[in-house]
Amino acid sequence: MSNANKAKGTRYEGEIRDYLNDLGFTVRRVVQMGNKDQGDLHGYPLHIIEAKNEKSIRLPEYVRQAEREAVNAGEPFGVAFVKRPRASTGDGYAVRSIATDARLVARLRDAEALAEKYAPAEVWKAHYEKHGAGQ
């Protein structure tokens, strides 16, 4: 990989980190670890993020890499954040396999049911409104 491509990738990792941190997360870039690589960004709850800013988009490769690196990092979910050409960071793509997405949605469903059952009504209502449709 040329230094220009590496710099482009590093810059995109920083853009993702800053974007997510502006939303209240505490995301950080991590050092690459060869065949035990643990993804590009940590601190996105339950995930590792594999950041991709390449001219040719290769989704199957990105998803395999993100899922492998999530296992290496001990996180349940891997996601590839793929740069959308000529678009803002937030308009990029978050890519995962359907199997991974189904596991994530099942976990969210179960957590929502527990919160609805055990949280005080006003806490549940505030949570639902904060994270409702269109947010």
Rank of each mutant, 00 (worst) to 15 (best):
A87C: 12
A80S: 14
K52A: 01
G78L: 00
A119L: 11
V30R: 14
D40K: 02
G39W: 00
V30F: 08
R68L: 12
L46R: 05
L104E: 12
K117A: 14
R68A: 11
R107A: 10
E75R: 08
K8W: 06
Y62S: 00
H42F: 06
S2A: 07
S88L: 12
D37F: 03
A102I: 11
G132K: 11
N35W: 10
A51V: 11
G34P: 04
A111F: 10
M1I: 06
A115L: 12
A70D: 00
V79R: 00
R84I: 03
L59D: 03
E50I: 00
V30T: 15
R28K: 15
Y44V: 06
N21M: 06
E67K: 05
R68S: 10
L41W: 06
N21G: 04
A113F: 05
K130Q: 11
K36L: 15
R103S: 13
E67T: 04
G9Y: 00
I48K: 02
E13Q: 15
I49T: 04
R109L: 05
K125W: 11
Y128L: 11
Y118R: 11
I98P: 10
A106E: 08
R96T: 12
Y62C: 01
A113D: 08
A70M: 02
W124N: 07
E75Y: 04
K83E: 10
P85C: 06
N35M: 13
T26E: 13
D22L: 06
G132W: 09
Q65Y: 01
R17C: 13
V82P: 00
A87F: 08
A102C: 10
R86D: 13
M1D: 10
A73M: 04
A102D: 13
I49C: 02
G92H: 02
E67N: 09
A111K: 11
D40N: 06
A99L: 09
D101R: 08
G24Q: 07
D37S: 13
A111R: 14
Y62R: 01
G34S: 12
L20S: 06
F77V: 01
L104V: 09
L46S: 07
G9R: 00
L104A: 12
E75H: 04
G132C: 07
G134S: 00
E15K: 11
K55L: 03
K8N: 11
Y128A: 10
M1Q: 06
T10F: 12
A119D: 07
N72R: 06
K6R: 13
V82H: 01
A133G: 08
E69N: 14
I16F: 02
P60V: 03
Q135S: 14
K8H: 13
T89E: 05
R84T: 09
A106T: 07
E112V: 15
A94C: 08
K125P: 04
H131Y: 15
Y62W: 09
A102P: 03
E54R: 05
G92K: 00
T10H: 13
A4W: 02
E61K: 08
D40Y: 03
E122P: 05
E75G: 01
G90S: 14
K55A: 03
E122V: 14
G14R: 09
E61L: 07
V63L: 05
G92E: 01
G24I: 09
K52N: 02
S88K: 10
T10I: 13
Q65R: 04
K8V: 05
G9T: 02
R64Q: 10
